[in-house]
């Protein structure tokens, strides 16, 4: 098993490294560089040449990649295209804000979606199941900006319970985002619940029809003990990977929702950076998102290994 973990870990590093190379080459291939972006209209003649010397842009690409990647490893992504702000600092606040939003959505969303999925699966084809499943499909099909707009209309404008958008600056302390981020978190929860719930539902149905559940019934195990001891540990295993994808999606910046609610998270920073042609920031965010995807999926794999005895075991039986 250790070997399996090491292999996964090595693969994860290779993936992140490949992403870094692709991002670097992509930015290289674009016309212009950091200096043309900083100097804008003054980017010609002596000023440009001086800037290039100052920023070390005349060095060969490989050397610059090594510099950039080496610094990125230590968390230093350089300065943004305006030439002043440390990217690590800007991005740092945004990452925290995205984490905050994700934590809000996940802490409600995961337990709720598991519960709904299990209930729908156990009472399959009854009105409960039909209600939940139809609700899930509904939540899945409405685009998030529509859901966001409707929620704003109801809770912010008609009822006035929460503010419609977030006006808190990116570097404010976490508590200042409450209660403004609630609506954004609710929209995200709605979308993720649908995915996880449908997965859990079909997994519960499959497990409840298995031979070992029939055997447990005929062993005289009471229904709820069957559900909790025999069925759920098996039924929830496949949910881990879906949850991991959802978590990665949330941490990677949910652009649309952040833009609609004006939430200062990673997604909005990415959009701003792209429209400002702030290439160093784009590079940094892409790297962070890639590393998050790899990391979260790695954690899911490890969790799957730990929780599933069939994968964990040393003495595997054949056939």
């Amino acid at each position: 098993m250790i070997q399996l973990l090491l292999r996964r870990l090595a693969l994860g590093f290779v993936t992140v490294w490949l992403v870094s190379v692709i991002i670097f080459l992509g930015v290289e291939a674009l016309p212009g560089d950091a200096c043309t972006a900083v100097l804008e209209r003054d980017a010609h003649g002596e000023a440009l040449a001086k800037c290039r010397v100052d920023m070390g842009l005349n060095a060969p690409a490989l050397a610059r990649y090594v510099d950039w990647a080496g610094a990125a490893l230590t968390g230093d992504f350089g300065v943004s295209a305006n030439g002043q702000d440390s990217i690590s600092q800007i991005v740092g606040y945004r990452v925290r804000n995205s984490l905050l939003l994700a934590a809000g959505a996940l802490s409600v969303g995961i337990p709720l979606s598991l519960l709904l999925g299990v209930v729908a699966g156990l009472w399959r084809d009854t009105w409960v199941d039909i209600l939940f499943s139809a609700g899930a499909i509904f939540a899945m099909t409405i685009p998030e900006f529509v859901a966001a707009t409707i929620l704003i209309l109801i809770f912010a404008i008609w009822l006035g319970w929460v503010p419609a958008i977030v006006l808190t600056p990116a570097d404010a302390p976490p508590l200042d985002f409450f209660p403004e981020f609630v609506l954004a978190a609710v929209v995200l929860t709605m979308i993720m619940i649908a995915h996880i719930m449908r997965m859990v539902r079909s997994s519960v149905i499959e497990v409840m029809a298995s031979d070992y559940i029939q055997m447990a019934t005929l062993k005289g195990v009471p229904y709820w003990q069957i559900v909790f001891r025999h069925a759920l540990p098996n039924a929830l295993l496949p949910a881990i990977n879906v949850i991991a994808l959802t978590v990665a999606w949330l941490l990677g910046g949910v652009v649309v929702v952040e833009v609609v609610f004006n939430y200062p998270g990673l997604g909005r920073l990415l959009i701003d950076a792209i429209s400002d042609r702030d290439l160093p920031v784009v590079q940094a965010i892409t790297m962070i998102v890639a590393a998050t995807y790899v990391g979260v999926n790695l954690v899911a794999d490890i969790l799957g290994l730990v929780l599933n005895p069939r994968l964990r075991s040393h003495h595997m039986s054949r056939g």
Binding site: S210, D211, Y212, Q214, M215, A216, L218, K219, G220, V221, R229, H230, P233, N234, L237, L307, N308, P309, R310
Partner: peptide, 18 residues
């Protein structure tokens, strides 16, 4: 499982894997 016991066809699948 008490007075009436069942021995299933495929015990590999009738025992809870976890």
């Amino acid at each position: 499982g008490g007075q009436l016991g069942l021995i299933p066809q495929n015990s590999g699948q009738a025992l809870t894997p976890t």
